[in-house]
């Protein structure tokens, strides 16, 4: 009856290692893109690109290395809820700083 047990974080069989190695290469490639892009004169968009790529990398790490891609919805919710309320904290605080006279 427990909704958490439907999809366990670690399957009983060993998953093939291929996707881990692939993910490693993708992450390193993204890091190079991140590094390279920061030398392009994009103005304010440098930080957008930098943080955007970081978000993609973080999602990949969580999905593959932390097994969220095969985890139950409740587990994913637990993983996401902290980021959601961090966004609330930063968003509403910035709302103050951006609208001050």
């Amino acid at each position: 009856m427990n909704e958490l047990q439907q999809a366990d974080a670690v399957p009983a069989k060993a998953p093939p290692t291929g996707r881990y190695w692939l993910m490693w290469l993708v992450l390193l490639a993204l890091q190079l893109v991140n590094l390279g892009s920061s030398y392009l004169p994009l103005g304010a968009f440098n930080v957008v690109v930098n943080v955007g790529i970081s978000i993609v990398k973080a999602l990949l790490v969580m999905a593959v290395f932390m097994h969220l891609s095969s985890a139950s919805p409740v587990m994913r919710l637990a993983a996401g809820v902290g980021f959601f309320f961090l966004a609330v904290l930063i968003g509403l605080s910035l709302g103050d700083y951006m609208t001050r006279p």
Partner: peptide, 17 residues
């Protein structure tokens, strides 16, 4: 979680916030 600024109305916080 989204109401904390009501402790800061007279603190110098932006009026819009």
């Amino acid at each position: 979680f989204m109401v904390w600024g009501h402790h800061m109305f007279v603190s110098g916080q932006s009026m819009y916030a």
